[in-house]
């Protein structure tokens, strides 16, 4: 029996349920506007570019690159005395091939190996029975 998952859970709502259900199936999905073609994150009631309400959920390639990164030796909270256990090794901002950016963690890298522009691909991390996260690894 694995340890219960105690980290913060996503707030799953009618807006983002397809995204989280997609990750459960190991598919990265986001809304695509039927009118202007924007593919966007975070899921919202209408296209944030042209305000069209006509959109569909599409499957993404899961490929992208590191737009920005930080190795987390500590944070503002740990500076104030919060525990460091549970802090991920890094925070990365991934620009997906299709355009949107996601905040995530990069796995399969040693400290000092992350580089801006590094090509990456999604890793579906089944962290709990009912929760899969989209982490990334070097492509």
């Amino acid at each position: 029996m694995s340890e219960p998952y105690t980290k913060m859970l996503p707030g799953i709502s009618n807006l983002n349920r397809p995204y989280w259900e997609g990750l459960r199936r190991h598919v990265l999905t986001l809304p695509e506007c039927d009118d202007c073609g924007l593919i966007w994150y975070a899921p919202s009631p209408w296209c944030p570019k042209c305000h069209s309400r006509n959109f569909k959920w599409i499957e993404l390639t899961g490929k992208g690159h590191v737009n920005a990164w930080s190795e987390l030796k500590g944070t503002h909270a740990t500076l104030l005395g919060a525990p460091t256990d549970g802090l991920p090794d890094n925070a990365v901002e991934i620009t997906l091939e299709e355009g949107p950016r996601l905040i995530s963690n990069l796995v399969g890298v040693e400290p000092g190996e992350i580089r801006t522009g590094m090509p990456v691909t999604v890793v579906y991390d089944d962290v709990a029975e009912d929760l899969t996260l989209a982490r990334f690894k070097p492509a």
Binding site: K7, L72, A91, L133
Partner: peptide, 21 residues
Amino acid sequence: GQDPVYGIDTTDVGAALVARV
């Protein structure tokens, strides 16, 4: 720029990402 689901729940990380860029 926080995403607590990925363990990023403080305001400094977004600033660190900006600094890196």
